[in-house]
Nucleic acid binder design. Structure first.
Length: 421
DNA sequence: TCTGGGGTCCTAGGACCC
DNA sequence: TCTGGGGTCCTAGGACCC
């Protein structure tokens, strides 16, 4: 197999730049929801030493001094540009697997050897010209090695955006130059642990015996170990149906108020229900979690979670919201101040396949709720909850969420335009 | 004062059964 | 009262990803 990992460079920043050319060449960061912390950095801001996840208040002085540009995240814009990039890849490759908003694997088996590099170079030019996004491509016989190759393509301009690992010499050299904690699948916990055991590079890691890796890291570590040696071990198919859907937010201000939390939980649950229906799915389980502010060591902490299991999988807004509120009531305690909450639906099944099981349940009520949800979906498109249950908060769900550095919404969806205040 | 959101997979341990 | 192994299912928690 030949895998090509196509990765958009500094994706969120590049999206902002695509519509604001004046940001080109300037240090830029994009913030998380609530303007909490840095989630994307341009090369210039990386060079300034700003780390991923830095709380915004720590770099705000740079913004005030005019040496750093900042934008709130604008997910509808990023989603739109992502779809355009993926569309171009899908037309160019026999098959693609979309891995995240800014990454996809192209499966290039069957493409003649001599065409591989020209194909990739052409894609880089086209995506830049048509969408305005710079991408890098790594080619290799396994996904993990394609990731390694992609790092090189990104880091060294000499590759002009494409790096290929296709023989033993290149593989060993690349792994010797790759710190072990840069490997896909080795995170912040295992990285330091491996280094403490004398495993500093990806190459060192591959030289350890399989049983050693298995004992230390389990089956997932062994998969990474094999992939780095050119043996395919990472599961092929991403399951078509999501196994869980989560909607959660941090609040701009802490709250212990039942009313307010009820409104928020209702909204999160309604959004989960809407996502379920969009996927054509239904869920057996609805969980609610609450977090106090873990950074406030002076306050009492409480991180409860509760799950309601429904007799029949549901996707209607009233059923999901009802279950979420029941779960909420079992764990809510008024003496704490909460900073974040969320709703997760899981144990998800195909919505079409559950029709037959419905006779156990009150058909009339169910059908009415499903019908009601259908109508709500027609009126409410994402981000515009014109129709909602009485428990849901009035106004936009994003009320109470900070978004002070938002760029104009450039990509042309009607919903987005209505969102401009 | 201010610290993201949305996922997946694996494993250990408890409950229960024979 | 104490005694045993083995299987399955479920859940919580940990680790990882972007």
């Amino acid at each position: 197999m030949v895998y090509a990992l196509v990765d958009c460079n500094n994706f969120f920043v590049s999206c902002e730049r695509a519509f604001q050319p004046e940001l080109e060449g300037r240090p830029v960061v994009v913030l998380s929801n609530n303007d909490g912390c840095v989630v994307a950095r341009s090369n210039e801001s990386k060079a300034m030493g700003i780390k991923m996840g830095t709380p915004f208040f720590k770099v705000k002085h740079l913004v005030d001094a005019g040496t750093l540009e900042v934008r709130s995240s604008n997910y509808s814009l990023y989603g739109d540009l992502s779809r355009r990039v993926m569309h171009i890849l899908a037309e160019a490759a026999p098959r693609i697997e979309i891995y995240s908003i800014d990454e996809a694997f192209m499966l290039l088996d069957g493409v003649p050897e001599a065409d591989l590099l020209p194909l990739c170079r052409d894609l880089i030019v086209r995506i830049r010209r048509w969408v305005g996004i710079p991408v890098s491509i790594g080619l290799a016989p396994t996904k993990t090695l394609a990731k390694v190759a992609n790092h090189f393509a990104k880091r060294y301009p000499g590759y002009r955006g494409v790096c290929r690992i296709d023989d033993e010499t290149k593989r060993e050299k690349a792994l010797q130059l790759t710190p072990v904690d840069d490997v896909w699948g080795i995170g912040w916990r295992m990285g330091p642990k491996l280094k403490g055991l004398g495993v500093n590079t990806a190459y060192d890691f591959t030289r350890r015996p399989e049983v050693w890796v298995h004992r230390l890291m389990g089956i997932t570590g062994v998969r990474t170990w094999k992939e780095l040696q050119g043996m395919e071990a990472v599961q092929e198919e991403t399951p078509a149906r999501r196994q869980s859907i989560c909607t959660s937010r941090s609040f701009a201000d802490m709250t212990g108020d039942t009313q307010e939390l009820t409104l928020k939980i209702s909204d999160f649950a309604a959004m989960c229900a809407q996502k379920l229906r969009k996927d054509g799915s239904a869920a057996y389980c609805v969980s609610v979690f609450l977090y106090t502010n873990r950074f406030r060591e002076d306050l009492d902490q409480y991180y409860p979670q509760a799950t309601i299991r429904l007799p029949v999988p549901a996707s209607s807004t009233p059923e999901i919201v009802g279950a979420a509120l029941r779960a909420f009531r079992t764990v809510y305690r008024p003496e704490f101040l909460y900073k974040k909450a969320g709703v997760i639906v899981h144990d998800i099944v195909d919505g079409a396949s559950i029709q037959g099981a419905m006779f156990e349940y009150d058909d009339a009520v169910r059908l009415r709720q499903d019908k009601l949800s259908e109508v709500m979906d027609q009126v409410n498109t994402e981000g515009r909850n014109l129709l909602r249950l009485a428990t849901q908060r009035p106004g936009h769900y994003a009320d109470g969420i900070r978004r002070e550095h938002c760029s104009r919404l450039y990509s042309t969806s009607w919903d987005d335009i209505l969102e401009i205040h």
